[in-house]
């Protein structure tokens, strides 16, 4: 009896001791240290990549390439921007970047007066170099150091040639563009016209539309009403392609039309896979990111001064619906 009692008490003691010590250990172990000042010294250069279209596949790739390159070179980079081409937000981000005195700004070109003001006056005032990426704004207007991205003129040519080989040398083609008339869009149009104008049997019709969905649909309707015997569409601005195709689909079958666009919109690739888009110009967003960061660092270190003001062109290729299926 006595032995049992002693045994039970001893057991209780041991159990209590165990739990107390486990609990005390949990309470007193100093695991929760505050994250301290980073041990590694600050990156040599602070760069910012600013885009109007955050989180689209195209810009995610650009950002990925840029971050990879920056890490390789020991620079720190952040990707800022606005969603859905919110220009106000976009410009604000640029201004913040300038006021934050980052070492370099890599920015998606925006062919507006405010943008040019910021880059030409404010950035230049603070001495911050700007490289445009993917979409260019002429050097004279923006004082950018250089441009990294596709040759939009070449892209226009490529898409026109593809159209000709698909459609033949006769037909009516609608070119639909954004009413903002940005620089890169003009370049594309120029490329297309330069090819198509050589063929007198190919009639081109240029239509401009605001970039709201309703406007795109209205313009498409209007076009199709006016010109019932259309053969091909080229969405010079990739963002209007989706609404345009939807409207065509509502009128008739999409397949008989030859429809082409570019890859810098989130929708175009899926349209291509669905077969609604006959061809798409694919650019190299990752390479753009890499090269832009690389050039910026080279410029900052003085390794390459000045940069080629004509820009550094990245690969483009034609992606056909037949190939992706």
């Amino acid at each position: 009896m006595r032995k049992t009692v002693i045994l039970i008490l001893g057991l209780a003691c041991v159990i209590l001791f165990y739990f107390t010590f486990v609990s005390a250990y949990k309470v007193f172990r100093s695991e929760w240290q505050l994250p301290r000042t980073s041990a590694h010294k600050q990156a040599q250069y602070r760069l910012v990549l600013i885009t109007q279209e955050l989180e689209t596949p195209f810009w995610v790739k650009v950002g990925g390439g840029a971050i990879e390159e920056a890490q390789k070179n020991g620079a720190s980079i952040e990707v800022w921007g606005s969603y859905n081409k919110n220009q106000e937000d976009f410009l604000k981000k640029i201004e913040i970047a300038i006021d934050s005195k980052v070492d370099g700004i890599i920015v998606q070109g925006l062919d507006t007066e405010e943008f040019k003001n910021l880059t030409k006056l404010k950035a230049a005032f603070y001495g911050i170099p700007i490289i445009t990426v993917a979409n260019d704004v002429p050097m004279a207007e923006s004082l950018r150091r250089t441009y990294v991205g596709s040759d939009q003129y070449l892209a226009g040519e490529l898409i026109a040639k593809q159209l000709l080989s698909d459609m033949g040398h006769t037909g009516k083609v609608v070119l639909m563009g954004d009413s903002r008339q940005e620089y890169y869009q003009e370049q594309r149009l120029k490329g297309i016209y330069d090819v198509l104008n050589k063929y007198p049997n190919v009639r081109t019709e240029y239509a401009e539309t605001a970039d709201t969905r309703q406007q795109v649909i209205a313009t498409t309707q209007d076009l199709m009403n006016r010109l019932p015997d259309l053969d091909a569409f080229i969405a010079v601005n990739a963002n209007i392609a989706e609404a345009m195709i939807q409207e065509i689909g509502r009128r008739s079958k999409v397949e008989p039309y030859h429809i082409y666009s570019f890859d810098d919109s989130p929708d175009t690739f899926s349209l291509l896979v669905q077969g609604k888009l006959d061809g798409m110009i694919e650019q190299s967003p990752e390479t753009m990111g890499k090269i832009s960061v690389n050039l910026m660092i080279k410029w900052l270190t003085g390794e390459m001064v000045p940069l080629n003001t004509d820009g550094y062109l990245t690969d483009i290729r034609m992606l056909k619906a037949a190939n992706t299926r």
Binding site: T37, S38, E78, I96, S100, V102
Partner: peptide, 16 residues
């Protein structure tokens, strides 16, 4: 206040 996570932002902040 600098730490690994806010390094970039904090530099911007101070420059601002």
């Amino acid at each position: 206040l600098r730490n690994v996570d806010n390094d970039f932002a904090l530099t911007n902040y101070m420059n601002l």
